[in-house]
């Protein structure tokens, strides 16, 4: 946590509510983007992000400075997003996913396909994954969190996080390979 952020949290805890505007400025894009990529609806994402910030403010006294403030805030955002997904009757559990069994292990994809992983393509691939998979990828690579920190955010054991990360990457590779095969068929 940066010094500035620490000061903002400390000022909030001392009763200076205006300091929360600073925290909001630092995190609003991160939390909103995280929610948007999980919920895929700008209005729902804004509602979830707003709920997360309001809850964070109210629960600021329960924040333990021994841990990263960002992971604490992302945990609240994760809960808000999961509530929103459940409210929208979207499947959050992995028990009933309709993914085909993965070939074991999935090999690397063709170089030409891997080179085409641009922002638009990866956004589409993330959107095609179940939220529980896309969120671990986002937390690991976009927010640069380790498995232990992600485990704290999503409230799951570290082993589960590692398994989800592995499976999420494999699913992306499968989809990349499938996309490349479809493109080749069209061209052929």
């Amino acid at each position: 946590m940066g010094e500035n952020e620490t000061d903002l949290v400390r000022r909030c805890l001392e009763g200076d509510n205006s300091a929360f505007a600073g925290i909001l400025e630092i995190y609003q894009d991160k939390i909103y983007s995280f929610a948007l990529r999980l919920l895929r609806d700008p209005v729902a994402a804004e509602d979830a992000a707003q709920e997360a910030f309001v809850k964070a403010f109210r629960g600021l006294s329960s924040y333990n400075p021994a841990y990263q403030f960002s992971s604490w805030l992302f945990r609240i955002a994760h809960n808000a997003c999961m509530d929103a997904l459940r409210a929208g009757n979207k499947t959050v559990s992995l028990d009933h996913e309709d993914f085909p069994d993965l070939p074991d292990p999935v090999r690397g994809v063709a170089e030409s396909v891997a080179d085409s992983i641009d922002a638009e393509r990866i956004e589409a691939l993330l959107a095609s994954l179940p939220p529980l998979y896309s969120e671990v990828l986002l937390l690991a690579y976009r927010e640069d969190m380790g498995p232990a920190e992600i485990a704290r955010v999503i409230g799951a054991p570290e082993g589960t996080v590692k398994a989800r990360l592995f499976r999420a990457r494999e699913l992306i590779k499968v989809k990349l390979a499938a996309g490349a095969a479809a493109d080749a068929t069209v061209q052929g």
Partner: peptide, 8 residues
């Protein structure tokens, strides 16, 4: 994949 997500 990791670098593509990190660059989002």
């Amino acid at each position: 994949i990791a670098s593509a997500i990190a660059a989002l």
